[in-house]
Design a protein around this nucleic acid. Sequence first.
RNA 1: GCGUCGAUGGUAGAGUGGUCAAAUACGACACGCUGUAAACGUGUUGCCUUCGGGCUUCGGGGGUUCGAAUCCCUCUCGACGCA
Length: 288
Amino acid sequence: MSKRHFDKPKVIVIMGQTATGKSALAVKIAKKIGGEIISADSRQVYKGLDIGTGKIFTKEMKGISHYLIDIESPKNKFTAAQFKELAEEKIKEIIARGKTPIICGGTGFYIDAITKGVVFPEVPPNYPLRKKLALANDRALMLKLKKIDPERAKNIDPKNKVRLIRAIEIAKALGKVPHLAVKPPSYKFIKIGLYLPAEKLKKKVAKRVKKMFNPPAGGGLLDEIKKLKKSGVSDKRLKELGFEYYKPTQEKVINGTMQYAKRQMTWFKRDKEIKWLNASKITKDYPL
RNA sequence: GCGUCGAUGGUAGAGUGGUCAAAUACGACACGCUGUAAACGUGUUGCCUUCGGGCUUCGGGGGUUCGAAUCCCUCUCGACGCA
């Protein structure tokens, strides 16, 4: 460990499976050490997606500032690069204020975008082009990519249309897809992962989903969807926003959430810097 | 009670004499990821294997055949129709 390591400002990262109590833990830590919270959730950035995404209620924030929640209309698309830019801005601001940034969320890709210092090629999405390319099949796209960027074509997943389309999009704009650049992060990230054994997680998810459909205060998930539709969010867009938002049933949402939790773990498992905590062992007075 | 149809792998559902360990979908498990990431993609999914193959499967039992998930008989269960 170099000395410089200690000079870097600390950023706490709370990640892990859905429904394990990340938000609550983040608030608790923030209270204790004087922190402010940056959400790392690809869907909580949207206004009006509250119940389905398990967004934290204002009163649960307990006066702690939260950022990158409710910053975009669900009619528009928000991307990982936008997240990276905004989050880095917020980190800087919070540190300048003498507080500790706490990144909290379950979207692994977003978290890695910040903590791993990956520099994405600066090519914004070109939706008309994507739409056009989506008409072609994977083989045709692969041939096209080979022609304009044989280098990238070598190691791309040849069957993944989404990746192929993005690669072509970049190559068209820049001539070729640049090699992935990694900039050493300017912060010391302390990563805490929350997980629950499958049985416990399932119970917790089931409870949470039940509440989504029948909240004590009224106005559940179905009302939320109605409201979104009324405000002009299309069915197609609702589908994109996740399984909770397109013809959900309790069973569907529970199963979908469990599948998601599993996928989250395959993502996080590779990150050896994470210190894992069993969420069921964290009590209200967990000594931090 | 008579008649008709049906019973297939974790589920749904193809297959109707050999090319069937059995399509496809879902689920399950594992894995990947260069601005969609709760997205998107890939692999495995009867058992054993020295990875060549071997063994047991299509409601139960019996039979026909060189060969049966597929044909015949019978039993069990289910749906519908007639009583």
